[in-house]
Design a protein around this nucleic acid. Sequence first.
DNA 1: TGTACATCAGTGAACGCGCGTTCACTGATGTAC
DNA 2: TGTACATCAGTGAACGCGCGTTCACTGATGTAC
Lengths: 207, 207
Amino acid sequence: MILPALATKKRPRPKQERAQQTYELLLDVAGELLAEVGIDRISTNMICARAGLTPPALYRYFKDKYDVLEALGGRLMARQNVALEQWIARHADNGLDALRDGIEELLRDTAAVTQSEPGAVWILRALHASPRLVHVRLESHRYVTDQLVAAYMRYLPEIDRDELWQQLRLSVELGFAADEMLQEETRVSPNLIFARVARILRNDDMP
Amino acid sequence: MILPALATKKRPRPKQERAQQTYELLLDVAGELLAEVGIDRISTNMICARAGLTPPALYRYFKDKYDVLEALGGRLMARQNVALEQWIARHADNGLDALRDGIEELLRDTAAVTQSEPGAVWILRALHASPRLVHVRLESHRYVTDQLVAAYMRYLPEIDRDELWQQLRLSVELGFAADEMLQEETRVSPNLIFARVARILRNDDMP
DNA sequence: TGTACATCAGTGAACGCGCGTTCACTGATGTAC
DNA sequence: TGTACATCAGTGAACGCGCGTTCACTGATGTAC
């Protein structure tokens, strides 16, 4: 549910209830501010002020500024992955066609998570742009690919695993690109995007 | 060749030869530094130092820091658009199938531009992440879409223009997503990406 | 159940630093006659 | 072709500001007996 690499924190995870809430609060606020002022102007001082805390409180939970953003990105992708795992649980036992027919649903579920998190689009974009953060996205997309490969392999035992992995890795990338596009390009209808991308990602021609 | 909206500068375009070179130099250096230190640590002072200039020289050509990045992004996308226009010139007169068969070539040509510009991937990513810069990417992708729509419409006179525009707009987004993926995901073969994405973007099922 | 002590959560106040930007200026290039 | 003047290109030096971060501390919560 949470990627091992992302859950590993330098700082010890907070023990008390209050601390856990503070930790989440800081991430919530960071997300909001990312949406409001953007990656260029967000600052640790700003996050603390908005959260009603003083800077040293933040540094109790995070090593530095990027550790905050890393955790924020990790939390978002972990939540997207919950949606993925639930989707797999629903469809994995019902054959290849069930998986293929369910792709649009997966896209919509993922988009719903993105939409519900405050500042999610900007988090995803920041994960793309900052050298210190790119690994979060990369690892998460690989993880998603691994899950999908496992689901598909049940019904395609003969298939070359590496070939399938590459195919699905590309599909994952395109799926997330479409997800981001939803929020950016107002001139294209979301329904068209969902339908068309789902069609594309069926991989009907897959060997 | 250069997008009108991007070419419009607050500051007058440099008149003298020397000035034109300085302008380009600043953009080159900005690209290099974006690749070396990333969007988070690049600064106007740093750009000037590397270019062997003092800060006021930079401010002769650019309104502020983001104006530099905006111009850099604009220049990159203008160069990608040159590749597009050359591709259209080569194929537009030869029918719908020529266009469709040429898509992989277009993807490869665009990728070649991205690869040849120093720091191009990081420029593209920065254009995604910074609120002040997102419009550059958006406008360029819409421009590319417009060009493709014009090329396709010649052979599909009956088609709903808006429908086609949305289809192609999505294709453009996915194409660029694939371009960025090339540089990020080393576990997927470029040839697979080019071939598969070209196949996807043929839109053979297009009405 | 109460108290003493240990640990955890958060504060107040400040730090040095490098950022983006500007002012008043000099040197280089172009132009008119 | 030479010179006087106008304009353009770039400099030297500094500015205020807010950034990320830390130190020494206090208040809150949990634990043992």
